[in-house]
Design a protein around this nucleic acid. Sequence first.
DNA 1: CGCGCGATTGAGTAATTTCAAATCTAGTGG
DNA 2: CCACTAGATTTGAAATTACTCAATCGCGCG
Lengths: 187, 187
Amino acid sequence: MKDSFDILIDHIEKIVPLSSEEKEFIIRHFHLKRYKKHQYIVNEGERTKYHYFILSGLTKLVYLDQNGKEHIVSFAMEDWWESDFYAFYTKTLATLSLICLEDTTVLALSHDDYIKLCNENPKMLKFFLEKANYGFLGMQRRILSFLTLNTSQRYEHFLKQYPKLLNRLPKSQLAAYLGVSRESLSR
Amino acid sequence: MKDSFDILIDHIEKIVPLSSEEKEFIIRHFHLKRYKKHQYIVNEGERTKYHYFILSGLTKLVYLDQNGKEHIVSFAMEDWWESDFYAFYTKTLATLSLICLEDTTVLALSHDDYIKLCNENPKMLKFFLEKANYGFLGMQRRILSFLTLNTSQRYEHFLKQYPKLLNRLPKSQLAAYLGVSRESLSR
DNA sequence: CGCGCGATTGAGTAATTTCAAATCTAGTGG
DNA sequence: CCACTAGATTTGAAATTACTCAATCGCGCG
């Protein structure tokens, strides 16, 4: 039976191999947290102290506009990293909220510990660089889908990319992610 | 009078301080290249061996869809890094083209040298991590502008963010970046 | 059985695209 | 200095697409 930290270590070792001392060292900086469906992990306007590695569950990262309309920046599930990264990285107040769509367990890494891990072990720098690069590329791909695809194509594109998510989330949430009204998505 | 490499070194030292040996070491891996307006730095379908640090000029990163319509993923100018990063990072064929909107000079870094710099000097890892993180955040902000803003607001938003670019590029190019027709942009 | 949530449908309205034509602008050569 | 041209921009009108708001449908759960 794997414990939570093993999942994290396996995840990191897909990119950089680690010695047992390094594993120990890394693990010490993460804290396990559990959230229920509908609970806020990060709330707009508050300080965002942590970056989260998701062990299980599903979350949405949300921006609320002036009209109270909800826009979904991203979904995150098992093996993904999530947070209001701008707020986390620059130590400013969150402009986004991170909300659970399912019961969710995470390993939380504070900003100080993020810096510490990076400074004390280049492997972690390399790991986070790889994650950041792929995060950038994912966002770039999404931009391209906005530029080149119409609504129904964007929907297909999403299904192809994340087939598992279709059953796990309400269509209305998908619409808020694709940038269309839920009525348009139906047709 | 500053030479090209000094500009690069200044740029890197905004994030990590460097010793003179490190500067020497880093500089050795970059090659100066010059391109004319309208020239292709990277061409869709070809191998993308380099990541480019732009010393002067202006470029667009372009995707051509099946109808031959041009979509602009990003603009890049002085002090920016650019390339078809996916193709560069994964050593696959370019799906995007990088084209000069002005005469442009760059410092080119090959993939092998990128890896080498990262492996041999954690400061460079840290530097590229910072760049990647901000690159990610820039893309995320752009996603949000697609989700929350209408055409004219996106236009305003762009002007506020890059006021200098307005005079430097044709409106039709801006339209291809914002994801609207040039006719719509006029109104 | 009835309630509530999410998904769908319909009709009217608003925004965007398309295609064509007209206008504007910068650069060229006479 | 002017006329000309190519490219870019704007304008107009019709067609398409998406949005809004309201009503209806369908399903799971108490």
